[in-house]
Design a protein around this nucleic acid. Structure first.
Lengths: 111, 111
DNA sequence: AAAGTTAATTGTAATATTGCAATGAATTAA
DNA sequence: TTAATTCATTGCAATATTACAATTAACTTT
């Protein structure tokens, strides 16, 4: 019904799924890449950069902020965003934990 | 409008977003973890394991198959699924490419 | 204070996703 | 052949996501 049964799954599974959602839209990937490259930026830049409406980008930024991958500070009339490095490491580890579970690929592909 | 404007983004951005979608549901994360642990399994096992309806799991399996992260072979009346190790490496690299772009965390967190 | 700037929020429309019952297709067992 | 088993597919309902115009909120400039 479009509603995920989170209670059926472990904390780890739900966490990873939620974090993966942040990367599950090209606009959010683009925002993250841009923030990494720029070291800091403001929403206005992204509107120019991405070609989406201001409201849409603001919405994507909120989603990224909600999972903690980015953080923003009001600077006068504009807002500066950047990657939250602590959270970034956490997320990186969350993925790598899964990636590293699959070992010795040569013994797999059994079907 | 619920429709992603893929033409605004690069191949890499769209690829990563699409792959991230595979991990963006706890049931699919659970399926992947189970396949890694079991080395191979069939749909029926997963219905017991996850507590979702057979049709729902079949649907998640199809999505995972579509991005190539798993593969299946018909074995008599049942189907064996396993991780596709080549694709697994590709996906791992796709994520790590992004993760590794963010370097020297101590110099960040500028806002 | 009035006007301008920047970005969040609200409201709305369209499409996507999730979930499952029912059904269908393919194989196996009787 | 008939029944049973396994899993994919279809059809449907409910919720989520994506996108944007319009508005609002907060600050700056004039």
């Amino acid at each position: 019904m479009g509603v995920t049964k989170t209670d059926l799954f472990s904390q780890e599974q739900n966490d990873l799924a939620q974090v993966a959602k942040a990367f599950a839209h090209p606009a959010r990937v683009a925002i993250i890449q841009y923030l990494i490259k720029a070291d800091a930026c403001i929403n206005g830049d992204l509107v120019q950069e991405l070609g989406l409406a201001q409201a849409t980008i603001s919405q994507h930024l909120r989603e990224l902020k909600e999972i903690g991958i980015i953080q923003g500070t009001i600077e006068g009339v504009s807002v500066s965003y950047c990657i939250n490095s602590t959270r970034w490491e956490e997320i990186k580890n969350l993925f790598n934990q899964l990636f590293d579970k699959f070992i010795d690929p040569s013994s797999r592909d059994c079907c």
